[in-house]
Nucleic acid binder design. Structure first.
Length: 880
RNA sequence: GGGCAGUUAGCUCAGUUGGCAGAGCGCCACCCUUACAAGGUGGAUGUCGCAGGUUCGACCCCUGCACUGCCCACCA
């Protein structure tokens, strides 16, 4: 082995070996299966810390289950990411002086595919660099035939069931992208705007209604003014008509309780074409809908002299014109929530357009039920996400699934040019229609829209397994748990692990769609939602802030395993993972520690030894018990989706028990290396799911493992480690005595090289004889006098349990230092003693606290009193 | 406006049935003791956001508040 941990020298080699030798593939040897479907990253994306986090967690679970003997499948894939990818290619075209509209749909799509071929492999290569043990032979792309087939089949079925419909609705229009986007893709941000107060005159100009609006440019599409029926201010306008300024159109004054009497003027202009709420009100009052802003974001002919201006910019001009005409009464500053396109950052225009929708209400019900009840079919980790889940699903809106993009799954619907009927193929039919289903005309053309990227993502758990075909994968790996039945087992057959930010975008939609198509069987039983990776100050990583940490940089510098351990350790139950590179260095140091411990063990262990468990003394027993507890703890933490806790337990045990104590004691005791060997083997296996590469590298260099790979070895479970059934009194006594004397030495500034002599008072000679070699060596005592009178004068005192050490100070230290040490020690004990006696003097404590606690407290008082008197006498013997 | 989380050592975070607060990094002192200086030994450091309440006992449970972050929402 190399002298220290150097990940660059083996990570790639190890990974390639695994992949080439098919170690990530599934094995039908076991009936028990475990499936994680990887959240498909954007095919043209580059790796960021969010990916690194999900890889760390998902790979840990995949490897853990694989080592536990499950037929384990981690299924990878990539997403076509409609908007993101299309925008990238469009930018490239722009740089080349052309555009998608100039080259046309077919040529454009060809370009995108070329782009995908060129950059599509990057992200999967990067995911490999992190050690991911996913089965690459099954990698799927959302536009691959397998996925496309599932998309088409689901669409045709949902259409036939009447769940998909087409309609003219008000939708969020991104003028930047020239497409509709879903509610989830709109980001609301508080924005400083103005509230304009305008006059809407009666026909005879005798009076006017004051209307407050933030968007004066939409007045050309006003179809009414609404006031509250009980608002006395506007009573005289009931059943009247008023003139819309500039447009000079008469519109009715309508009464609706939706209007807030207190806000603005209490009169609301109704513009169904450009406002979600107005649209609802318009529908309620059977008003017509006008649009004065086009899909290009510009005002149209309705706006008269302002036609052709970008709506957003026209506001000032219009306000000016209104002021000149003395229509504008006043304007006030006003803060409100404004919708922005998540992708492009441009302001979203609510516009009327023809779109495809998926009815959600009936689909959402099973998803709600799946998480309801005492023993729900789906469990969330952390559990609090369940509340958010219900909140959203119970208020769900229909999903606008059509996008006016070219890159994606083109909607499988054909429009007839003659009769305008829509023809959607029958479910199961793979041929495209050639005739109108209604009038049989052959002048039909496929809908030009594509489906929202999340539509294919929603089918991902079943499309990757081969649905709609009745595939064997589906039978083997898809859960049998139904949404409306109590959870049948604690173990999840399938785990969904992803970021909490896409709970609605993705997780909820998968549950709805897959459950619908799989006869009520849910796609996964456990949902583990990880936090968002931030920088060490908790701020979002962004290029503009310059705080982005590139996982590949980190991997190159410190190794993928170091990064994985760091991300796992920081992935607690909160909503953020604040990545602190200082901590990363700490975990790298930990790996190095293991590396060196292995080197030490290998020097000790006879190469021909066979692996078996066999404790040769109380030190071995103590270690084996520790290992047993550790493996219990880790398996249980992993089961509870607390990989951070599992790793933390591992860190503590391996460093502070195994390295600091066992290895040091081993150097003194020598003898059989069986336990040393077993412990090393076990510890390396325990860590493998979390730090796969270094553990595989180490495992390969253990002589007794031959050429076996750790990836397929058993994960240590509690029951495989024999019960020791011991209180480990000896080891605790060793630790206590050694720590006490070490403390004495340091506080008295005794050079570590100097060996001291000591006088021991004890009534438990048996125990002392059993531990003395270790205490003497580790505390550096060269001569010990047992139960003989210590010399008078300057002495130091150390006390542990039944052992009192008196240490002559001549030639060692100055008396003052020891006095100080004893004094502060005494103070501490007095404080503790006061606390405990105070408790015991409290009658209520004695009568109400658990009896064993009271007993414990009494024992503490006895022990402390003894210790105290011993220390006081030592202090007195120092004189003055 | 509603909801969800967080607030613990200088910094990043643990603390799961309530029983004298922990880790990493940083800090101080001493050690290159041959597995490891990416190390060893010992040490310092906290009104556990604020205010009440329940309890013999509260970082932990309850109530209210403050601050931070996120999500949802139709006050123009």
């Amino acid at each position: 082995m190399e002298s220290s941990y150097n990940p660059n020298s083996f990570e790639q080699k190890i990974y390639h070996k695994w992949e080439e030798e098919g170690d990530f593939k599934t094995s039908s040897a076991s009936e028990k299966t475990f499936l994680i479907t990887m959240p498909p990253p954007n095919v043209t994306g580059v790796l960021h810390m969010g990916h690194a986090l999900f890889v760390s967690i998902q790979d840990t679970y995949t490897r853990w289950k694989r080592m536990l003997g499950y037929n384990t499948l981690w299924l990878p894939g990539t997403d076509h990411a409609g908007i993101a990818t299309q925008v990238m290619v469009e930018r490239q075209l722009e740089a080349e002086g052309t555009s998608r509209t100039k080259i046309g749909r077919d040529a454009f799509l060809k370009k995108v595919w070329e782009w995908k071929e060129e950059y599509g492999g990057t992200i999967t290569e990067q995911i490999r660099a992190l050690g991911s043990s996913c089965d690459w032979s099954r990698e799927l792309f959302t536009l691959d035939p397998k996925s496309s087939k599932a998309v088409r089949e689901s669409f045709t079925r949902l259409y036939k069931d009447g769940l998909i419909y087409r309609g003219e609705r008000i939708v969020n229009w991104s003028s930047g992208l020239q497409t509709a986007i879903s509610d989830l893709e709109v980001e609301l941000k508080p924005t400083e705007g103005k509230l304009y107060y305008l006059k809407y005159y009666l026909e005879d100009k005798s009076d006017y209604l004051q209307v407050a609006t933030t968007r004066p440019e939409t007045i050309f599409a006003d179809v009414a003014v609404a006031v509250h029926p009980q608002d006395p201010k506007w009573k005289k306008f009931h059943n009247k008509e008023v003139f819309v300024p500039l447009a000079n159109r008469k519109v009715p004054v309508i009464l609706d309780e939706y209007v807030d009497k207190e806000f603005g003027t209490g009169a609301l202009k109704i513009t169904p074409g450009h406002d979600q709420n107005d649209w609802l009100i318009g529908k309620k009052h059977h008003l017509k809908t006008l649009s004065c802003i086009g899909k290009d974001g510009k005002l149209n002919e309705l706006a008269g002299e302002f036609a052709g201006m970008v709506a957003w910019h026209s506001r000032k001009k219009i306000a000016e014109s209104l002021r000149e005409k003395e229509i504008l009464i006043k304007e006030e500053k006003h803060q409100h929530e404004l919708g922005y396109c998540q992708r492009t950052g441009v302001v979203v225009e609510p516009l009327i357009s023809m779109q495809w929708f998926l009815k959600m209400e009936s689909l959402a019900k099973p998803a709600v039920e799946a998480a309801s009840g005492e023993n729900p079919a789906i469990r969330f980790y952390p559990d609090y996400w369940k509340k958010t889940w219900f909140e959203w699903l119970n208020n769900i809106q229909d999903w606008c699934i059509s996008r006016q993009l070219w890159w994606g799954h083109q909607i499988p619907a054909w429009h007839c040019k003659k009769c305008e009927a829509i023809t959607v193929p029958e479910p199961g039919q793979s041929d495209n229609p050639t005739k109108c289903g209604s009038c049989s005309s052959d002048e039909i053309a496929q809908d030009t829209d594509v489906l929202d990227t999340w539509y294919s993502s929603a089918l991902w758990p079943i499309s990757t397994l081969g649905w709609p075909d009745n595939s064997s994968d589906l039978k083997i790996y898809y859960p049998v748990q139904k949404y409306n039945e109590p959870r049948n087992t604690d173990e999840a057959k399938a785990l969904m692990e992803t970021g909490s930010d896409i709970l609605f975008f993705w997780v909820a939609r998968m549950v709805m769609m897959c459950t619908h198509f799989m006869g009520g069987k849910i796609p996964f039983e456990d949902v583990f939602l990880h936090a968002m990776v931030r920088d060490e100050k908790g701020q979002k990583m962004s290029k503009t802030k310059g705080n982005v940490v590139d996982p590949l940089d980190v991997t190159e510098q410190h190794g993928a395993d170091s990064l994985r351990l760091t991300l796992l350790a920081l992935s607690g139950q909160g909503r953020n993972v604040n990545l602190d590179l200082k901590r990363l260095e700490g975990y790298k140091a930990f790996i190095n520690k293991i590396w060196n411990a292995t080197k030490f063990c290998l020097i000790q262990i006879n190469e021909s030894e066979k692996l078996e468990v066999n404790a040769s003394d109380y030190i071995d027993s103590w270690l084996l018990d520790g290992l047993k507890n550790l493996s219990h703890q880790m398996n249980s933490d992993l089961k509870n989706y607390r990989p951070d806790a599992a790793f933390n337990a591992y860190y503590q045990f391996t460093w502070y028990e195994f390295c600091d104590w066992y290895l040091e004691l081993f150097k003194i005791k020598k003898g059989s290396t069986k336990t040393l060997q077993f412990a090393l083997d076990t510890l390396i296996r325990l860590l493998h799911p979390m730090a796969p590469m270094v553990t595989e590298e180490i495992y390969q260099s253990l002589p007794w493992t031959k050429d076996e790979k750790i990836i397929h070895k058993e994960y240590p479970i509690e029951s495989k480690i024999p019960v020791q059934n011991s209180e480990h009194t000896e080891v605790y006594a060793i630790k206590g005595c050694v720590e006490g004397i070490r403390n004495f030495r340091t506080e008295n500034k005794v050079n570590p090289k100097i060996k001291i002599s000591a006088y021991l008072q004890t009534e438990n000679l048996k125990l002392w004889n059993s531990i003395s070699p270790y205490v003497l060596e580790l505390a550096k005592i060269e001569s010990i006098h047992i139960n003989t009178q210590a010399p008078k004068g300057a002495v130091g005192r150390v006390n542990f349990g039944q052992f009192t050490f008196t240490i002559p100070l001549e030639g060692l230290v100055d008396k003052d230092a020891e006095k100080q040490r004893l004094t502060s020690e005494i103070k501490k004990i007095e404080k503790d003693l006061a606390f405990s006696t105070g408790r015991l003097n409290n009658e209520k404590f004695v009568s109400k606290a658990k009896p064993e606690l009271v007993e414990q407290e009494k024992k503490i008082v006895t022990d402390l009193s003894l210790k105290l008197s011993s220390l006081i006498s030592a202090l007195e013997s120092l004189g003055e």
